[in-house]
Each structure stands twice: as C-alpha cells, then as structure tokens.
Amino acid sequence: MNPLMEGVLETALYADDLDAAEAFYGGVLGLQKISRGGNRHVFYRCGPGVLLIFNSHETVKPPESSSLPVPPHGTKGHGHACFRVGGNDIEAMAQKLKAAGVAIEADFNWPNGGRSIYFRDPAGNSLECAEPRIWGL
C-alpha cells in the first residue's frame, strides 16, 4: 500500500536580505508572519500551508548541538512559488502589486481556463498568483 501525500505543507524560497523579504511578504503581500529567526529565516502562513524564506548563507551551516537536527540545505539562484488566488482576487492582487511598485512580468489566461500573474520578490524569486483551475482544481 502506498502512503498518500495529502498536499504541500511548506514551500521554501531563499533571500539574502531578510529585512527586504519581510517587508515584501508581510507588507506588500500581506502574509501573516509566524516567526523570524534572526538573519536565518522568516516564516509565514499562506492558506493551509507555510511559506519559508531562508537566508541560504545561514542554512548551509550545520545545526548547533542545542538546535533542532535539521540538516544543512539551501539553493543558489532564483526559485519559483505559485500562490493560490481566487479569480475574483487576482485583479485586486495585481492592482495591489502595481500600487507597491512591483512590476507584473506576465498576465494571461491559460488555454484550459484560469488566470496567472507573474512578478518578482526583492531577491529575484519568480512568484505567481493563479486560479486553482489552471491545474483542474
């Protein structure tokens, strides 16, 4: 019997400047902050999941003996995350981003239905807000 994966619990992106990331994800996008761990990470609620923003310079360090045994991890380069946004809210999000000076890189309707908007966070990560129906959900 194969175990059932119920969904994605957390998504991680990486940013060297956590202050800029915190201002963007908490201020511009309006996500609820769970916690911040110095210059290592800042975590946010995002619907039923969690968005983790890590400083890769810190997460590649081995854990201290008194900390949780999370193995070193990280990535180089820009990542991508897509946020689930209802069709009625995508235009409002696009306007909110534009008002904050965030450029919309792409805005289109998928052939199978559903709209997506693409933009970048201060670290250069590619972000998308999309209707769930782009994946038939």
Score class of each variant (00 low, 15 high):
Met1Asp: 00
Asn2His: 06
Val8Ser: 04
Val8Asp: 00
Leu9Cys: 07
Ala12Lys: 04
Tyr14Asn: 04
Tyr14Val: 07
Tyr14Pro: 01
Ala15Ser: 15
Ala15Glu: 05
Leu18Cys: 09
Leu18Tyr: 04
Leu18Met: 05
Asp19Val: 09
Asp19Ile: 04
Ala23Cys: 05
Phe24Cys: 09
Phe24Val: 10
Gly26Glu: 07
Gly27Gln: 07
Gln32Arg: 15
Lys33Ser: 05
Lys33His: 01
Ile34Gly: 00
Ser35Trp: 01
Ser35His: 06
Gly37Tyr: 12
Gly38Ala: 15
Asn39Lys: 12
Arg40Leu: 05
Arg40Cys: 00
Arg40Asn: 05
Arg40Val: 11
His41Gly: 03
Tyr44Ile: 08
Tyr44Gly: 03
Arg45Trp: 15
Pro48Glu: 07
Pro48Gly: 12
Val50Ser: 00
Val50Glu: 13
Val50His: 00
Leu52Asn: 12
Phe54Glu: 02
Phe54Lys: 02
Ser56Phe: 09
Ser56Ile: 01
His57Ser: 13
Thr59Gln: 00
Val60His: 08
Val60Phe: 05
Pro62Cys: 09
Pro63Leu: 14
Glu64Thr: 08
Glu64Val: 03
Glu64Ile: 02
Ser65His: 11
Ser66Tyr: 14
Ser67Tyr: 04
Leu68Asp: 07
Pro69Phe: 08
Pro69Asp: 10
Val70Trp: 09
Val70Leu: 15
Pro72Gln: 06
Thr75Asn: 12
Lys76Trp: 11
Lys76Arg: 15
Lys76Asp: 04
Lys76Ala: 11
Gly77Ser: 09
Gly79Phe: 08
His80Asp: 00
Val85Thr: 13
Gly86Pro: 01
Gly87Lys: 09
Asp89Thr: 01
Ile90Met: 01
Ile90Phe: 01
Glu91Ile: 13
Ala92Val: 14
Lys96Tyr: 04
Leu97Asp: 09
Ala99Lys: 14
Ala103Tyr: 02
Ala103His: 12
Glu105Pro: 00
Asp107Glu: 15
Trp110Cys: 11
Trp110Gln: 12
Pro111Gly: 07
Pro111Met: 07
Arg115Asp: 04
Arg115Lys: 14
Arg115Ser: 07
Tyr118Lys: 06
Phe119Pro: 06
Phe119Leu: 10
Phe119Met: 06
Arg120Ala: 10
Arg120Ile: 06
Asp121Arg: 01
Gly124His: 01
Asn125Ile: 05
Glu128Arg: 08
Cys129Pro: 02
Ala130Phe: 11
Glu131Val: 08
Arg133Ala: 03
Gly136Thr: 14
